[in-house]
Structure formats: structure tokens, C-alpha cells
């Protein structure tokens, strides 16, 4: 399941909903991405996330389907927020459920690595010296690249 939303998410409620009525799940891994203020002197006071309605949801669904094809997942969830967020606010939640922990860990890492490079989101940071668009990072591309060769 995937969602793009402006509202905050409730991790306890989301994970409880995934487990409700299930007795086949032995491992649940969750990841939250959080807005970071950055370094002293160049601190981010707010971050606005923009997406491409329609394409973004389709990309997230495709990435989730790819994870389910590579690992034996019982359930998964991606929630990505958009709009203006402050340092300390959660941006993204990825949850993976499997019978055993290794699949859940690996699939969760794969999902977050892939959505950083494949899902259409853009970030505008506000700092004391003005606004700036966050550039794509080579380290994120490298993190996603590793799944091309050793995934699942």
C-alpha cells in the first residue's frame, strides 16, 4: 500500500493496521525519514516537498511491487509526505512485513534506497540565506545502484 499525503502519520496506528488479523507475519521493519536541520551556520528552517500527482503514486506502486517480487513479503507500506515541513518532522515511512527478519530488513532498505532515486519528489529548503532546491546526491544513486546487482 502506498500513500502520498500532507498530514503527519501515526506509526503505531499504521503498524497495528498492518498486523491486524494476521498471524503469518514474524518480522516487521519500519524506517522513518526525518527533516534534518543541517549544519550550524547553514541551518534549514523549513523544507517544502513537491510531487507530481499521478506519476509519483504510480512510481511508488511500481517500487513496492518490485520489492514484493524480490522478497517474500506479507505486507508493505510506503507513506510519503508533501508540503511544508519543519526540522524534526517525519517525511517518509516505509514498513515491510515478512515471515522472517532478513527479507523484511532487506526489502525495507531497498524501498527507501529506490524511492530516493526513482520517485518524483523535489525538496525546497529554506535557510537564513534564502531558498535552495536540494540536489540529487551521488551517494543516493550509489545506494540504489547496489540493488541492481545483489538484490534478492
Amino acid at each position: 500500500m502506498i500513500r502520498v499525503q500532507r498530514e503527519p502519520f501515526d506509526v503505531a496506528a499504521e503498524t497495528a493496521a498492518l498486523l491486524a488479523g494476521r498471524t503469518d507475519i514474524g518480522a516487521m521493519v519500519s524506517f522513518q525519514g526525518v527533516v534534518r536541520a543541517g549544519e550550524d551556520g547553514d541551518r534549514v528552517s523549513a523544507m517544502t516537498l513537491e510531487h507530481y500527482p499521478g506519476m509519483t503514486e504510480r512510481a511508488l506502486e511500481r517500487i513496492e511491487a518490485e520489492a514484493s517480487a524480490r522478497w517474500p513479503l506479507q505486507a508493505s507500506l510506503i507513506i510519503h509526505r508533501v508540503g511544508r515541513l519543519a526540522p524534526g518532522d517525519p517525511i517518509v515511512l516505509v514498513v515491510t512485513c515478512a515471515r522472517h527478519r532478513q527479507a523484511a530488513f532487506d526489502a525495507c532498505a531497498f524501498l527507501i534506497d529506490w524511492l530516493k532515486t526513482e520517485a518524483p519528489f523535489w525538496k525546497l529548503e529554506e535557510t537564513a540565506s534564502g531558498e535552495r532546491w536540494v540536489e540529487a546526491r551521488a551517494t543516493d544513486a550509489a545506494a540504489a545502484q547496489r540493488w541492481q546487482t545483489d538484490g534478492g
Binding site: 506519476m55 518524483p120 540529487a136 543516493d140
Partner: peptide, 10 residues
């Protein structure tokens, strides 16, 4: 048709 810079999600 959409034109956009490299994406930066997560």
C-alpha cells in the same frame, strides 16, 4: 509531457 530536475525523495 513533464520536464523536471533529478528527483530527491525520501
Amino acid at each position: 509531457v513533464a520536464f523536471f530536475p533529478p528527483v530527491t525523495g525520501g
